[in-house]
Write a protein that binds this DNA or RNA. Structure first.
Lengths: 337, 337
DNA sequence: GTGAAAGCGCTAACAC
DNA sequence: GTGTTAGCGCTTTCAC
């Protein structure tokens, strides 16, 4: 099966193609530039020569010349969160569809947002999307100075010079409260889980405010860092509040799943008979049989589309005032509430 | 909070820094090249000037010049599979750690491996890792010709010029069979799910061969494309084979989870009393309470490390014969078997 | 150790 | 429509 390795041919450039096709190298360049003015006949001649030589445009060289690479950085964290993984997947696909080339940097102990963003800037990327922690303000300013659009996903509204995209967390929290109230729950609990950051806070607050409107104060349970384990942790408290027929809101499906799963297996609680649970995101696992989780869905493809729009707008017009765009959410009714 | 946007400064180049520091631009270049010969004093002087001007090396220009960009392409599919997402995460992190810059392309309806690989080649990437379908042989040859190392993850051994990395699927299948036998199961079933591709096949075959060694023929159940749904589908058949005290092997945790979950909720089956189930990969969901899935674990960080090693080796020595490296696997004993 | 000059492969005025 | 020329910003011999 393994033939001899092909001899490494010396890299073939536009000049090689030009010579072979008996044209100038600019003609070659034009032949590979959509919408440039070349006669069809020479274009074909050039394409043929290129084909024979195995020529491919060097996008690095083109990038240097055009001062734009079409590279777009994505800075992510917590890819073990299924929703985040889906977001990245959808974003990467949509970027490619729009002619960009996604780079993926994941935060970890050794590399923080700032360092990664700095590398991206050195590559003269056409834009950056950040789904992890927000970067320091000063480097945002530097992006602005360099004309590199920055989009923050699900982050607070406190950074200058950048565009933001969020799910409609307020509506989401409200929908959750309303669904639980309509299901006839008498008391309300929200689980606060810190790794969710800004969005989680907003969702929980909106939930609590909505129940307060009906005169019922929601209890807040705070739990630790890991999402599923956090839900499991919350189960201990929730198990003791069952007599009030509670409705529980978790600002993330994984937290909700940890809660539901633990409540049933460890405490023999029946859902939705004894309590209702609502999650957030509608990850694939939410529909699994053991949970059949009612949840608030936000579409990752909407996110991707809007994010790329934001990027493109700002490339065309860097002077635009910073914008925040919201993605709609809706309730997905299953059996847990 | 929103100050006025900083005026877009014209891009500052090495020449600007050079003038400001009263040196030549080659000095500036050296100052930013680790291990170049510059006196400490001028280096400092240059760094200071660069700092003041807000200079950052243009990696695109450097890439053009050095004929290598340190960009490494990752071509992935099915990021909704948690294991794949973890693999990408681990790989991206390790690449950065080693000084590379990961690009992420996800296969979809509009973009197949070949097209995406072709784009990558145009960026003169330093290497490509493919965790999705294998690309056509001819483009592999082209990578070889261009001196771009290619690593295939979990793919069959049928492509020339490329390196491969696999989990030890044979050992994994055997371990599963042995664990089930030790648990006293009397009959054996393996679920075949096609989206798993090559690795899935090998695992199932190894499982069947191992039970055959003990004189018991394993039954194979073939199911549809979606992993969890495939497991649920298998549940229907498995539910009718319970009297034989079966041990079931699923070559992916998500399939196993679909099976376990459906068996319990739809058929009231008790696990492990009535049957044993073993999955593969040890994704986070495998340890969730509803399943407590016994599974075969393969470390994503091992994968990442070996993959990058493979890449680096071949960059240093492109003439190397194609290699296949195996990552070890082991049994994670939980409650489902 | 430092500077001058050449060149990486491409695009974009500008002439013709 | 096509060729000529001049860079894009960097690294790298090669002298000194």
């Amino acid at each position: 099966m393994n033939k001899v390795p092909p001899t490494r041919t010396s890299p073939v450039t536009a000049l090689d193609v030009a010579r072979r096709a008996n044209v100038s190298r600019s003609a070659v360049s034009r032949a590979f530039t959509p919408g440039a003015s070349v006669s069809e006949s020479t274009r074909l001649k050039i394409l043929k020569a290129a084909e024979e030589l195995g020529y491919r445009v060097n996008l690095v060289a083109r990038g240097l010349n055009k001062q734009r690479t079409d590279l777009v950085g994505m800075i992510a964290s917590r890819m073990d969160n299924p929703y985040r993984a889906q977001q990245i997947d959808a974003l990467a696909k949509h970027l490619v569809r729009k002619g960009f080339r996604p780079m993926l940097f994941c935060i970890d102990e050794e590399n923080n947002v700032e360092q990664l963003l700095s590398i991206l800037l050195n590559y003269r990327v056409s834009g950056v999307v950040i789904t992890s922690d927000a970067p320091p303000a000063e480097i945002c300013a530097e992006c602005a100075r360099m004309g590199v659009p920055l989009v923050l996903v699900d982050r607070a509204d406190d950074l200058p010079f950048v565009d933001r995209i969020n799910g409609d967390d307020v509506k989401g929290g409200q929908l959750a409260a309303e669904a639980l109230m309509e299901a006839g729950r008498q008391s309300f609990i929200a689980v606060r889980q810190d790794s969710l950051g800004y969005s989680g806070q907003v969702r929980v607050s909106a939930f609590a405010e909505r129940t307060a409107q009906e005169g019922i104060k929601a209890q807040i349970i705070s739990v630790g860092q890991d999402e599923y384990a956090g839900g499991a942790e919350a189960a201990t408290s929730v198990a003791e509040m069952l007599e009030d027929n509670p409705g529980v809101f978790c600002p993330s499906d994984t937290v909700a799943l940890g809660l539901v799963d633990t409540l049933r297996t460890r405490y023999g609680v029946e859902i939705p008979r004894q309590l209702g649970v609502i999650g957030y995101d509608d990850i694939p696992q939410a529909s699994w049989n053991f949970a059949r989780l009612t949840t608030i869905r936000q579409s990752v493809t909407d996110f991707a589309r809007v994010t790329v729009d934001l990027l493109c707008d700002r490339m065309e017009n860097p002077e635009l005032a910073p914008r925040t765009r919201k993605v709609d959410v809706h309730l997905v009714q299953r059996d847990s509430a």
